[in-house]
């Protein structure tokens, strides 16, 4: 089993050593997400095209340990971008990773950049 929560740590922007070339932009639906594999990690990437923003976080929902966040709907609460887990609609900030509608553990978030039609996710190792 690789669904271990502790495998996912929010990446510190100043310590990024690896920019992983994850997928072409066209593989990500507009205003939606998809999942990529990096080593043993599953990372959800969101193309928030309405805001012209990209986000990445762990695919694992800490509520019931389901690999599902990439399939969740994204949106906003006030100005805060968020994703809702498809299983029980727990919502998490895509910026801070905090659970917005309960007291689940925060999810790990990762920096994203887009260059020449490709999406890159930043990792510390």
């Amino acid at each position: 089993m690789t669904t271990k929560l502790e495998m996912y740590k929010t990446a510190d922007n100043s310590k990024i050593t690896t920019w992983f070339k994850a997928a072409p932009v066209s593989a990500l639906p507009e205003n939606g997400g998809a999942c990529i594999k990096y080593k043993d990690l599953q990372i959800a990437i969101y193309n928030f095209s309405r805001r012209n923003e990209w986000y990445a976080c762990q695919n694992l929902c800490p509520h019931k340990m389901q690999m599902a966040l990439s399939r969740g709907m994204i949106g906003s609460e006030g100005d805060e971008p968020k994703v809702a887990c498809p299983f029980h609609k727990k919502t998490f900030s895509l910026r801070s990773g905090q659970n917005l509608n309960g007291d689940c553990a925060a999810i790990a978030t990762y920096p994203v950049k887009v260059e020449e039609g490709y999406v890159y996710v930043g990792f510390e190792d």
């Binding site: 309405r50 969740g72 709907m73 609609k89």
Partner: peptide, 19 residues
Amino acid sequence: YDELLNRVGKGDGCEVCKP
């Protein structure tokens, strides 16, 4: 959905209004 949100809504939508 996008057209409706642009014309009569605000913000970026959510898991309630989208479905």
